[in-house]
Write a protein that binds this DNA or RNA. Structure first.
Lengths: 223, 223
DNA sequence: GGTTGTAGTTGAACGTGTTCAAATGCGTTG
DNA sequence: CAACGCATTTGAACACGTTCAACTACAACC
């Protein structure tokens, strides 16, 4: 396939994605039909399936594009702040701000906890996406000097990633005005995390370290 | 409607539930069709919808029945143990054991995080079920003397309920042999919870109490 | 410039959960 | 016992996501 055709193919794909996002915003994810989306993109129903495996896969494509577009913003935010708290806050708020116009749509992604479902945030298929996100937290942790017990430290980025998933999930369904409850959740828990990390060095917490370390090793495998 | 008719109606409902569970076990939740379930119950497709709002509502009915049937077992377990750890463990393991034969089916219930979805564990519609479950943890907490900060204590049962939901969720998708990973998760986290509760009285943890208290108040409302 | 292969496109068809107007029972009433 | 009313039952119809065999367009090749 020549360059030109590749470009055209990518353009068609993008056109469907655009039409889908428009339709999702108007009718919601459930309310929008594939027939309608395809029509809005100026093509027959089946065509959409040539470019996307499923209706939900369109949302995943949106998330993937978001990841790319958010990259620079996150980089900048990381460069601007030194403390773990500020860095993690930066990553999460950047994400939430980006997704804000399509907030209800995100429920289509967070809906799948089943790790065998292709679109679950925990599935094999989404591993590349997950690792891309994880990299942010690795950078956030890596360049700040923390005194964490050796048996926990390797898991901190993954724990923070999980934490961020939780915040995102809460945010998606947060019905308070301007998602103020999410703001509170984020601020308070960030502070608690910071205190927790700071206290992690204290020797009398050894029993907790041991338990946490063993647990993490079981769940994530030796690290 | 006379007594006899009520009994017959309940019996038909039960027959559909039985047929559904049989079919779910054979084909899985997705694989089982309403047509098949209705046929297995010896009736037309539409009849099932006279008794159940949806396919998923059948699973919810199963959960509801489970709650009733598990009641005595949980009571007994609570009567047998004194420490918070043993009590919470008792409640959770009783549940997991009960659900074991239909474990894959539970994914149909844990699938909905959306609190606006009628079948979400967080929805308005499931509030009675939730409060029934909550009562177990209130009993588990109530009769053990704990020294918890006043601003956190009222929320402990709800926090434990949430914890139990997490364990259940993990268990449903746990692919390790005999769900051994869940066993590890449960044991380690239980011990961490106990240590956490014990340490909660220490004065230098005041900042954490304050944060936690404020957060819980925002999320659950004044208590 | 014709031929051929492949990327892209079409819309009907499939199987699903769910709805619903109509039919059927069945206990109660006059 | 006939007539009524209501709970129950029926199965066709609907709308949806998805599949697919057939068709089209276009670039590469001889």
């Amino acid at each position: 396939m020549p360059q030109k055709a590749i470009a055209k193919s990518a353009e068609t794909r993008a056109r469907i994605l655009e039409a889908a996002l428009r339709t999702f915003r108007e009718r919601g994810f459930e309310g929008a039909t594939m027939r309608e989306i395809a029509a809005a993109a100026g093509m027959a129903t089946g065509a959409a399936y040539y470019y996307f495996e499923s209706k939900e896969a369109i949302v995943m494509a949106f998330y993937q594009r978001a990841q790319e577009e958010m990259g620079p913003g996150v980089e900048e935010s990381l460069a601007r702040s030194r403390t773990l708290e500020a860095r993690v806050r930066g990553i999460i708020t950047a994400k939430l701000e980006y997704f804000l116009p399509n907030r209800p749509l995100m429920s289509a992604l967070t809906a799948h906890v089943d790790p065998t479902h292709p679109l679950s945030p925990f599935s094999e298929q989404t591993q590349p996406i997950r690792e891309h996100d994880l990299a942010h937290f690795e950078r956030a942790v890596g360049e700040s000097q923390l005194r964490l017990p050796k048996n926990i430290a390797p898991y901190l980025p993954r724990l923070l990633w999980l934490y961020q998933m939780g915040v995102l999930l809460f945010w998606v369904y947060d019905r308070s005005r301007d998602q103020q409850r999410t703001a509170v959740l984020l601020e308070k828990t960030l502070k608690m995390i910071v205190i927790g990390v700071r206290m992690a060095g204290l020797p009398f917490l050894r029993p907790v370290h041991r338990l946490a370390g063993e647990l993490l090793e079981t769940l994530y495998g030796k690290a």
